[in-house]
Amino acid sequence: MRKHLNRAAIAALSLTVASEALAVEWNVSLWGKRRAFTEHVEKLAELVNEKTGGEFTLNISYGGLSKNKENLDGISIGAFEMAQFCAGYHRDKNPSITVLELPFLGVTSLEQEVDLSMAVYQHPAVVEDLARWDATLLMPSPLPQYNLVGVGEAPKSLTDFEGLSVRATGGIGKAMETVGAVPTSMSASEVRQAMDSGIVKAVSFAPHAHMSFGTIENGTWWTTNLNPGTVNCPVVVNTLALEDLSDEHREALLGSVEEALDHYVSHYQTKTMEAWGPELDQRGIERVTFSDEEIAAFKEAAAAPAAEAWIVENTERGLPAQELYDLVTGKIANGS
């Protein structure tokens, strides 16, 4: 009897050890707080947990693992397995995907932004570019066109941006330079303090970020139709960690991306955009709308020169820059 009990105990212990050995936990580095911008990661964690019966979990941290501008570095050394970052934070580290941040590309929906980003992410030159950091691009964080919230007197025309200090990264910053603004690049978490102290007079964000990072708390005006572009903020995973997953866990992760993105887009369109107008009205923030003629002149001054400069610079880096640009503009022209 004792022999049989011992065997049963050993078998139970072995089963427990085996189950623990199968359990996988990934650390995920985000920043700020849970918001529209992170809903796809939250949904991904939920789906992976469900599909694996809790054997594979994503432990999401908002700022506890790394600074947002250092997330790609953290991925490269395996400090965590998954992270989100924005291409404009360190253009030299991920030049290939900055093609998606060129001004006035003409993207009209979050769904189109998803399709466009995924097409670029799968291009061999882009895969190779991010591989330098042991990073595999998993999914984008699609954002609508950026616009400005500012303090002080509202601009009446684009000439009023002359000399105005603006938080604007990537291609949006380049575009604002063409109307005389002085762009400054800083992370989202630094913006409110910079605005309060007068370092910047206006901030370029998508609506969710204006709400999440407090620019509307002291802002007095909002541009409704500048629409110079957006930023590209992918979610990446450490390539070795991805390869080390079991087939079941890898499929649970990769097979959940589409559903996570669908959830993100739906959440952004219903929750964020529905709240945006009332938030502006509640605070008495003035809406500034520029004429069609001014917007057309802005686009003409900013779009082509920025694209040409990007192609020249990144061709010199050894990237197939013209090919990447043609991929993006071709898909947009075809409505895909």
Rank of each mutant, 00 (worst) to 15 (best):
L242R: 08
K3R: 13
T230H: 13
Q122H: 02
G63V: 01
Q145N: 09
V235G: 11
E55I: 15
N232F: 04
N94M: 13
K174F: 02
E190L: 13
Q193T: 03
D244E: 05
V203R: 07
A175L: 09
L242D: 02
E42I: 07
S109Y: 00
A83M: 06
N225H: 12
G180P: 03
N227W: 03
L44G: 09
A297G: 10
V99R: 07
Y121H: 04
E42G: 11
V17Y: 09
W221A: 08
K299M: 15
I10E: 15
N227H: 06
A241L: 03
W31N: 15
A206Q: 06
P103V: 09
A135N: 12
V149R: 09
V237W: 06
G330P: 05
N238M: 14
A301G: 07
H267F: 03
M118W: 00
G198L: 12
M195W: 03
D160P: 07
F104I: 02
L138F: 04
A209G: 05
V231T: 07
L242P: 01
E25W: 06
E248C: 13
Q112D: 10
L280Q: 00
R91I: 09
G152S: 09
H208P: 00
A168G: 12
V200C: 13
F161H: 11
K51P: 00
A296C: 09
T108R: 12
S117L: 10
L102Y: 00
T159D: 14
G54E: 08
